Amino acid sequence: MAIEGKNKTVLQTVGVVVFMGAMAWASVPLYDWFCRVTGYGGATGVAEATTGEVLDRTIKVRFDASLERGMPWEFKPMQTEMEIRIGEEGLAFYEAYNPTDRPIAGSASYNVAPFGAGGYFSKIQCFCFEEQVLMPGERMQMPVSFFVDPDIINDSDAKHSKHITLSYTFYEIDLPENVQAALETNSDADASLN
């Protein structure tokens, strides 16, 4: 009986460890999905174009970049701040560099601070809409085009914002199947030449 009880405890402990590991692995994509669906955490909007209305009032947009632990890329904004008129389209660039000797795929999660301004910050085009793959030694400049919706001035909390910070965090993902297949084909071709 005592051995059966110990086995049950060991299995329960292993189950908890596996579950916690799976949750840690999935935390960044799940948080990103949660923010996009609920708007919590300053998730931004997505638009095809500006509203056409541009106000005389300006707002500063700050840019921030970070990497999930273990992500080997280098990642930074090309500018730290810009001032734009509310409603005007802005264009900023981030740079990513893969210093390793292997291809690495990444996906970016994002948020906006202050949280109340997130609903008024809209991205028209963004590198974060797609997975990014960098080959060994590759450096890439990635654009994000955006605007601050003029409706921000009608929000009792957000209208007092003097600046908005757009933050991205890149995390490593599995290589897309088409990239993996191309690498294997190239490897096979190189092997047949030797």
Rank of each mutant, 00 (worst) to 15 (best):
N98P: 06
F93M: 14
P99G: 07
T80E: 14
V112Q: 02
C126Q: 04
M82D: 14
A117V: 13
S122E: 12
P143Q: 10
E138L: 08
A105H: 11
V133F: 05
M78L: 15
I84E: 03
Q125C: 08
Y120V: 03
E130S: 13
G116T: 11
S145V: 05
E131C: 02
E88C: 07
Y94A: 06
R139K: 15
I86V: 13
I152F: 02
I153K: 02
Q79R: 12
G106T: 11
I86A: 00
F127C: 04
I152V: 13
S109T: 15
T80Q: 12
F115S: 13
D155C: 07
G137S: 09
M82V: 15
A92N: 08
P103Y: 10
P77C: 09
Q125N: 14
P150Y: 01
I124H: 09
F93W: 12
E88K: 11
S107R: 15
A92E: 11
I104K: 10
R102W: 06
V133T: 14
I86Y: 00
A113H: 05
N98L: 06
M78R: 12
Q125S: 15
I104M: 08
I152C: 03
G116D: 13
F146H: 01
E130Q: 12
S107E: 12
S122I: 00
T80Y: 07
R139D: 00
Q132K: 10
A105C: 11
A108P: 11
C126R: 01
I124A: 08
E130G: 07
Q125F: 10
W73A: 02
G106R: 04
A105P: 09
M142R: 01
R102Y: 11
E89F: 03
Q132V: 14
A108S: 12
G106A: 14
M78Y: 01
P150G: 04
C128I: 06
E130I: 11
C126A: 13
I153L: 15
A108K: 02
V112T: 15
G119L: 10
P150A: 03
G119C: 05
F75G: 02
Q79Y: 07
C128R: 01
E131P: 06
R102N: 09
F93C: 00
D149P: 04
F147Q: 02
A113N: 10
T100V: 01
A105D: 09
I84A: 05
F93T: 00
S109N: 09
E81R: 09
W73I: 08
P150M: 01
T80V: 02
I153F: 00
F127I: 04
M82T: 15
F75Q: 06
A92R: 07
Q125A: 14
F115R: 10
F127S: 02
D155H: 12
G137L: 10
E138M: 12
S145C: 08
E81H: 01
G118F: 07
M78N: 13
A96F: 03
G106Q: 06
M82Q: 15
P103I: 00
P150T: 00
